[in-house]
Design a binder for these strands. Sequence first.
DNA 1: GCAAAAGTGTTGTGCCTACACCCATGT
DNA 2: ACATGGGTGTAGGCACAACACTTTTGC
Lengths: 256, 256
Amino acid sequence: MVVVTINAGEATDVDGYDKHAYEPFAVTVDLAVFTLRAGALHVLLVERGQEPYAGRWALPGGFVLPEESAETAARRELAEETGLTGSAGIHLEQLRTYSEPGRDPRMRVVSVAFTALLALPPGAPEPHGGGDAAQARWTPYDSAGPLAFDHDRILADARERVGAKFEYTCLATAFCPPEFTLGELQQVYETVWGTCLDRPNFRRKVLATPGFVEPAPTGAARLTGGRGKPAALYRAGTATALHPPLVRPATEGRPA
Amino acid sequence: MVVVTINAGEATDVDGYDKHAYEPFAVTVDLAVFTLRAGALHVLLVERGQEPYAGRWALPGGFVLPEESAETAARRELAEETGLTGSAGIHLEQLRTYSEPGRDPRMRVVSVAFTALLALPPGAPEPHGGGDAAQARWTPYDSAGPLAFDHDRILADARERVGAKFEYTCLATAFCPPEFTLGELQQVYETVWGTCLDRPNFRRKVLATPGFVEPAPTGAARLTGGRGKPAALYRAGTATALHPPLVRPATEGRPA
DNA sequence: GCAAAAGTGTTGTGCCTACACCCATGT
DNA sequence: ACATGGGTGTAGGCACAACACTTTTGC
């Protein structure tokens, strides 16, 4: 076998041998797509129709095409799986790359994993899967049983990253509809962190961070659940970082 | 061309066609290896001996071999480039994956980038490069002129990540020898951040964080530069996260 | 009126910045 | 003696957690 490991540059030996002579690497993307449904964190899963892991659930994903970047491929898969048309504004972020040999029993697959956060509009279409016999479904994170391949680990990594990023970014608005109340934003935090937050302090913190939220142009307020004082509406601001961070309290009681 | 994009699972169509029929993806690793030399941040670069970018400097890296994970390949390359034997304890961390088509003019190369932090022992061997005509050299970060491929961007991303991680992790000890003084640790922070820190406060902060540093078993102290009171020696603790974080002050004066 | 949810005020604690000050060593 | 760097003490300030309180709606 040709030894390329002492090569100092990047791929400088490629010209020297047949590009097709070796077992190729397949490059795929895997997506951990999160949303909030009925006050619980849900993840988008697809059911596999073929071996290996036929009948098992897995993260959606697919091949990176020859002319695509991994980001482009991920956004394309996301649009296909969720059926959402305007996927341009959806928050999509690279998580990390999983490359252990043997993670796919058939061949060498290197997978770039992404995390996506989206808000389901009230009348959003159910995910329809991507053809074949596969179906797609929103699944509560806690019920996302054993998945195919190493997707359990990918999903856990993605979940952890989302929780951590909530502390120092404005990411939480990605789970909210275009206009939302501060109470809804707080519920997003409480659901993702599994903690209770003090409402007055949360409110002050959010409003004191420039660019986190801005009042909705319509001065309108909305009734939360029928009862209670109507809440002011806000929309996501332009800021992306959160200084100072919103610290997650030590694990305490669950939100009511 | 076979349409694989509507496939819901991961690589489920692979069995249906010849694995060698398409232009394969090459998978490489690129390393941004940082160290501190003479009070300045340095990065390990190699000079390319072949086209494209012959004579230009680039980040070290190489192919992922068929039986390797990207992490394994990165650690192997790191050991080869630095000549360090005990590379097991070196901090190595995945940065992100760069997959834009055309980033290598010859073929489709997907590169998993890593960041490595290490302390150069006093008599450390100079990096010897990896064979061919390439040479390797420690270069001040600020002088790391235009690099080959998209390595300027990778290096900038790595640099930013290192600075950010210093705030909320114990990573700074990776730049220190096995035993170090708190003054040395502070200089590490000041060099990486380009700021001045208050010594008494820095000291308290570090010592108040359990597991950040622990006193060296030998009660020995060391003379810093000939002058001044001998400083107590510490070694890196077992903690990895930093609660609460060590906040980087708004960009002010440079360290003396 | 009562419950429920939004929104405002206030107070105490604690951390952290900034600076003054002592200690030990080399020249 | 003095310069240099390590180490300790302390006062002021700012931020935040905790909780009391008012407001506006539905029943």
